[in-house]
Simulated scan of single mutants.
Amino acid sequence: MNKFSYTDMLAYLGISSAHPGGFMLTKSILDNEKIERNSQILDIGCGTGRTSAFLAKKYKCNVTAIDCHPTMITKAQKRFKRENLKVKLINGTAEKLPFKKETFDFIIAESVIAFTNLDLSLKEISNKLKHKGKFISIELVSEDVLTDNEKEEIKKLYGLKNILSATEWKKKLTNHDFSSVVVEEDNNETDQNIASEKHDPSEHLNPELFQIFESHAKLIQKYKGRLGYRIFKCTK
């Protein structure tokens, strides 16, 4: 049994934008949203805090970041302090968001929700969004029918709880009180290379972490064309 998980690998290597499409997609999505200084934004599964920091710097808005991995939280704290940003950082999960009802104008989750109990997370997200607020998520999707063994291989490596098609994702989102669910493809899609992203590695890295990274690279090649991703924009 592996000592470390895929999420551990991202945390200890300090990979800041491991989600499909990377940070370029993040910026492209946010540039198309009407984010104002008084906007309240929640970044679920903030990781090392790159997206939260970008939001705080560019839009000067109110940003709350949440994650449950201690190493991610430590590195996000370091980033916010280094960049002198007033981002509220909380230890928590998508399944139990510690906020009042209708708190946020935007909730963002970049390759996070598939790792959670979908029904619990989506119920919480819908509850914490203001009326006409928007939930933006980037998620892995199956582009082809996968066998049970193939799904288990993918789930085992990443620790995923869900592997859904784009249609299945839309149906699930529509069932959680969103008045509108728009599914978009990344028009500038490129092969993601998380090795090219900025890193903040921990000291004394265990060799097993690099083995997980190699397994990830091999799996991406194995399922090329059969796994993809979509951008989901959901309005309450």
Rank of each mutant, 00 (worst) to 15 (best):
F4I: 00
D8E: 04
M9G: 10
I15L: 08
I15N: 02
G22V: 08
F23D: 09
F23K: 09
F23S: 10
T26A: 06
L30A: 04
D31I: 01
N32P: 04
R37Y: 14
R37P: 02
R37E: 15
S39N: 15
Q40G: 09
L42T: 06
I44E: 06
G45A: 11
G45H: 11
C46L: 07
T48N: 05
T48C: 02
G49I: 02
R50P: 04
T51R: 03
A53C: 03
K60V: 12
A65M: 13
D67I: 12
I73M: 08
I73Q: 07
K78G: 00
K78C: 04
K81F: 07
R82F: 12
E83W: 02
N84F: 01
K86D: 09
K86T: 05
L89P: 00
G92H: 03
T93E: 07
E95I: 00
K96M: 00
F99A: 04
F104R: 03
F104A: 04
I107E: 02
I108W: 07
V112S: 07
I113M: 04
F115H: 04
T116R: 02
L118M: 08
L120W: 02
L122E: 05
E124W: 00
K128S: 01
L129Y: 08
K130Y: 06
G133L: 11
F135L: 09
E139F: 07
V141S: 01
S142D: 08
S142P: 03
E143A: 01
E143V: 01
V145H: 15
D148N: 13
D148R: 09
N149Y: 11
E150M: 06
E153H: 10
K155D: 02
K156N: 11
Y158F: 14
G159N: 09
L160A: 06
N162P: 11
L164F: 11
S165I: 00
A166E: 02
E168Y: 06
K170E: 12
L173C: 10
N175T: 10
D177L: 15
V181I: 09
V181Q: 06
V183Y: 09
E185S: 11
D186K: 07
D186G: 07
N188Q: 12
E189H: 10
D191E: 15
A195E: 05
A195R: 05
A195M: 05
E197G: 03
P201W: 13
E203T: 14
N206M: 04
P207W: 02
P207Q: 01
L209M: 02
Q211I: 07
F213N: 04
H216E: 12
K218Y: 10
Q221E: 14
K222W: 09
G228A: 01
G228C: 04
G228D: 04
Y229E: 07
F232P: 13
F232G: 09
